[in-house]
Amino acid sequence: MKVRTVEHVADLRRRPGSQRPVRLTVPAEALGPLGTSAAVVPPEGEVDLDAVGEATGVDVVVTGTLRFPWEGDCRRCLQPVSGTVEAEVREVFEPTPVEAETWPLDGDTVDLGPMLREVVLLTLPLVPLCSEDCSGPDPERFPTTVEGEGGADEGDDEAPPDPRWAALDELRFD
Results as ranks from 00 to 15, higher is better:
155 G>W: 14
116 L>A: 08
86 E>A: 13
22 V>E: 01
149 E>D: 08
24 L>P: 12
106 D>C: 04
95 P>E: 02
154 E>W: 11
10 A>W: 11
91 E>R: 04
53 G>D: 00
67 R>T: 10
70 W>N: 03
15 R>A: 09
101 E>C: 07
83 G>W: 14
83 G>Y: 15
129 L>C: 10
134 C>T: 13
84 T>V: 11
159 A>M: 15
174 D>F: 15
162 D>E: 05
42 P>G: 03
173 F>Q: 11
168 L>F: 11
71 E>Q: 12
15 R>V: 03
113 G>N: 00
94 E>T: 08
53 G>H: 02
5 T>S: 08
134 C>W: 00
117 R>Y: 06
143 P>L: 12
72 G>P: 12
136 G>S: 08
64 G>I: 05
166 A>W: 13
174 D>C: 12
148 G>F: 00
144 T>E: 09
126 L>Q: 14
114 P>A: 00
33 P>K: 06
21 P>F: 03
7 E>R: 14
122 L>N: 11
159 A>N: 14
83 G>M: 07
53 G>A: 09
55 A>F: 03
83 G>S: 12
47 V>C: 05
67 R>Q: 10
129 L>P: 00
28 A>G: 13
113 G>Y: 03
174 D>K: 13
46 E>P: 07
135 S>R: 15
152 A>S: 07
134 C>L: 01
29 E>C: 14
29 E>M: 09
39 A>G: 08
40 V>I: 04
133 D>H: 15
28 A>W: 10
31 L>F: 04
8 H>Q: 15
79 Q>R: 06
169 D>S: 13
96 T>I: 12
92 V>M: 06
62 V>W: 02
115 M>R: 00
141 R>V: 04
149 E>T: 08
120 V>G: 00
106 D>A: 09
174 D>L: 12
110 V>I: 13
119 V>S: 05
160 P>K: 15
107 G>Q: 09
111 D>C: 00
123 T>K: 08
50 D>G: 07
168 L>A: 12
34 L>E: 09
169 D>H: 14
129 L>N: 05
54 E>I: 02
121 L>D: 05
31 L>E: 08
103 W>R: 01
25 T>V: 13
3 V>G: 03
11 D>N: 06
89 V>C: 03
108 D>E: 07
17 G>I: 01
20 R>W: 09
78 L>D: 08
169 D>F: 15
7 E>V: 04
171 L>F: 13
174 D>N: 15
27 P>C: 00
110 V>M: 09
12 L>H: 00
29 E>F: 03
112 L>A: 02
135 S>G: 15
97 P>K: 04
142 F>T: 14
140 E>G: 05
20 R>A: 05
114 P>S: 02
12 L>N: 01
